[in-house]
Design a protein around this nucleic acid. Structure first.
Length: 410
RNA sequence: CGGGAAGUAGCUUAGCUUGGUAGAGCGCUUGGUUUGGGGCCAAGAGGUCGCAGGUUCAAAUCCUGUCUUCCCGACCA
């Protein structure tokens, strides 16, 4: 891909309304552009990263028997009246009317729609269990959107809904998805902690959140510095400095960004929305549901927060928008194009074919954060390129003819 | 919704106290020069000073209203 045609509007200075590091970098590196408060455009580089994250999510879900679908963002009032949430959800529900004055909302979540869909077909235990997910834009009219992609009014979310015959099957799905989420965030290069969280009216320890430790997080979590114990501070009896009840470790507190949650819904929606099936013993029973969310756009932001300095992103290999950044300096333009075409058969390659001075190209390359950089400069006279491994800033002079071999060995 | 701050060119901003022809840097265009870390020189283009009303001979500047954005709080499946 040629940088000259990709639209990568990098900025020397951050927009004045960008408060946190990841927001500044996402804007400066040309990944996102604000359109309104809490509403962002994902530019070409931004959407590439988001699609990488989505691919990991899809792989981990599909491998566990979940099926992807796509539900509407626009939802009729009737469905929300059925569940009682037209009144209960409150002002965060984006409401609108069509030209005939009928009420709709823009979906903040999809329990109503999915329940209405499956109830018409699922009439027997023989058709269960079922796990359906989508990756979709959600709408919530937040009182105060903040920190770029952290809390938006429009954001991208993966939401999965499971339908089971009983609690035991729900428990299995819950455990399966806890594993899946652990794998998704690990593969995305994010360090997360799993914390028990509030379950509202359902009670018990049936909800967990996946938190990325970060200064800009909105939640405070308490965790053990030795074992896996972690909890949302609101629901933890422990505080900083206490000794861990599960091991010899010490309790610490930190801010966290909630990037995922898993939640046992039970029969709340199936009962209120009349989603029943007939069990093997002939009994009519409500579907037992679970819901599982991942904030995809928020994960993108958390990744930048965790993998950057003030002037430079450094993408994990699994979600980087490109693998290799070719930076030809003056006189090496043709060589750059040829090398791009060669390497592009094996790698995702970005070629900085702009007519810019070296300093401009280097600064932009630092910002954008592609892990491998190939500089075509002085050493091309000896048939060599400089290969920079951004992870450790090691520079290797590699014969241009050997670059495929060199990169495949890394 | 309470508290605070801010809207001036694509971006960052000066000017506002004390009213009098709207400035700079970056970016952009043209020419020259330069070419390994956001060069330099020259010339140029680009502005309803968020919007509306008011005060005044005269408003970016003072007053009122309104919209937008950001921060703190409350809220957050």
């Amino acid at each position: 891909m040629k940088q000259s045609v990709l639209y990568v509007p990098t900025l020397k200075e951050a927009p004045s309304n960008a408060e946190v590091k990841s927001h500044r970098l996402l804007a400066r590196a040309g990944l996102i552009k604000q359109t309104a408060a809490g509403v962002y455009t994902y530019l070409p580089l931004g959407i590439r990263v988001m699609q990488k994250i989505e691919r990991i999510i899809r792989e981990e879900h599909d491998a566990r028997g979940c099926s992807e679908m796509l539900m509407p963002a626009l939802q009729p009032r009737d469905l929300w009246e059925e569940s009682g949430r037209w009144d209960d959800y409150g002002p965060a529900l984006m409401r609108l009317k069509d030209r005939k004055e009928r009420d709709f909302c823009l979906g903040p979540t999809h329990e109503e729609v999915i329940t209405a869909i499956v109830r018409d077909y699922i009439d027997s235990y023989k058709k269960l269990p079922l796990a359906l997910y989508q990756i979709q834009t959600k709408f919530r009219d937040e009182l105060r959107p903040r920190f770029g992609l952290m809390r938006g009014r429009e954001f991208v979310m993966k939401d999965l809904y499971t339908f089971s015959t009983d609690e035991a099957d729900l428990d299995r799905w819950y455990a399966t998805m806890m594993t899946a989420y652990t794998e998704i965030f690990r593969r995305s290069g994010l360090e997360t902690k799993i914390v028990a969280s509030d379950t509202g009216e359902i009670g018990g320890d049936q909800a967990h959140e996946f938190m990325v430790l970060s200064e800009v997080g909105e939640d405070t979590i308490t965790y053990c510095d030795t074992c896996d114990y972690a909890a949302n501070q609101e629901y933890s009896a422990l505080s900083e400095g206490d000794s861990c009840p599960h091991c010899e470790g010490t309790i610490k507190t930190a801010k966290g960004i909630e990037v995922g949650n898993i939640f046992k819904l039970g029969t709340k929606y199936s009962e209120s929305m009349n989603a029943f099936f007939t069990d093997a013993d002939g009994q009519r029973k409500p579907l037992v549901m679970g819901c599982y969310g991942i904030g995809v756009s928020r994960t993108l932001m958390a990744a930048v927060e965790q993998h950057s300095t003030e002037d430079s992103i450094l993408w994990p290999d699994s979600i980087t928008p490109f693998d290799v950044h070719i930076v030809p300096l003056k006189g090496n333009e043709d060589l750059g194009r040829r090398l791009h075409d060669r390497l592009a058969t094996q790698h995702e390659v970005l070629l900085d074919d702009r007519d810019e001075r070296p300093g401009v190209k280097f600064k932009d390359a630092d910002l954008i954060g592609i892990p491998w950089r190939i500089i075509l400069g002085k050493s091309t006279k000896e048939g060599k390129a400089e290969v920079v491994n951004r992870r450790n800033d090691e520079v290797q002079l590699v014969p241009i003819d050997d670059l495929e071999v060199y990169l495949s060995g890394q």
